[in-house]
């Protein structure tokens, strides 16, 4: 449905905005390398079922997400490594990995590798933006491109919420995917303060600065 398609394209847009920023400005300043590595982990653990993905739409997006994320990490770790400031990227990701790992082991739909890894990936994605938001907090401001990147990334999962509501009412056989929905709502809540600042500042053409 339209919400989901918009969400997936918003996700794709966020990746291209980020790629554009890094290549245009030849710098990855203001971007959290830790968050990018977490996203890589999210894609790998979520798309283990890539080889037998039924719909071409999903297959193409999965390949796009994995390959573009690999490229972003290459750019940040190799090509533009000097512009990477690890002193600003100090969020303790082990807490996020522990959070996702614990929930994946406690409440998977089924104790199979695929399901446990999938649950891990869903929970990890819900908190993977924290190092990036934390870094934003530290620097107090961000380039417009970085703000657009985070906004598009936040919109992707936010749009999945109406998608789930739509599916609930339109597909009689559809059962609510409680893990994805709970994590999706948590994820969107984590972006809420950013969205507010983004909306009030960037929409008025101002530079993105935290109050």
């Amino acid at each position: 449905n339209i919400f989901r398609v918009l969400g997936d394209f918003s996700h794709l847009a966020s990746i291209f905005i980020l790629l554009h920023k890094i290549q245009q400005l030849k710098s990855c300043s203001g971007i959290s390398f830790k968050s990018q590595v977490l996203y890589m982990l999210v894609y790998i653990t979520r798309y283990l079922d890539l080889p037998w993905t039924s719909s071409p739409y999903n297959f193409i997006f999965k390949v796009l997400f994995i390959s573009s994320e690999l490229y972003i990490i290459y750019l940040m770790a190799r090509a533009y490594k000097p512009t990477n400031d690890p002193n600003l990227d100090t969020f303790h990701v082990e807490f996020l990995l522990g959070f996702a790992g614990l929930l994946a082991l406690l409440f998977p739909y089924k104790y199979t590798i695929l399901e446990v890894f999938w649950a891990f990936s869903i929970w990890l994605e819900s908190v993977a933006i924290l190092p990036q938001l934390f870094m934003l907090q530290r620097t107090g401001e961000a380039e417009a491109m970085t703000a657009h990147y985070i906004a598009a990334l936040g919109m992707y999962r936010a749009l999945y919420i109406p998608n789930w509501i739509y599916r609930y009412f339109s597909e009689p056989t559809h059962k609510v995917d409680t893990i994805a929905v709970t994590a999706g709502i948590l994820q969107t809540i984590l972006y809420s303060d950013f969205f507010w600042i983004y909306y009030t500042k960037v929409m008025r053409g101002e530079k993105f600065k935290l109050p």
């Binding site: 039924s54 399901e115 995917d177």
Partner: peptide, 10 residues
């Protein structure tokens, strides 16, 4: 197989 083992969303 149940619904959950067919992941139809990204």
């Amino acid at each position: 197989k149940g619904r959950y083992f067919v992941k139809d969303e990204l």
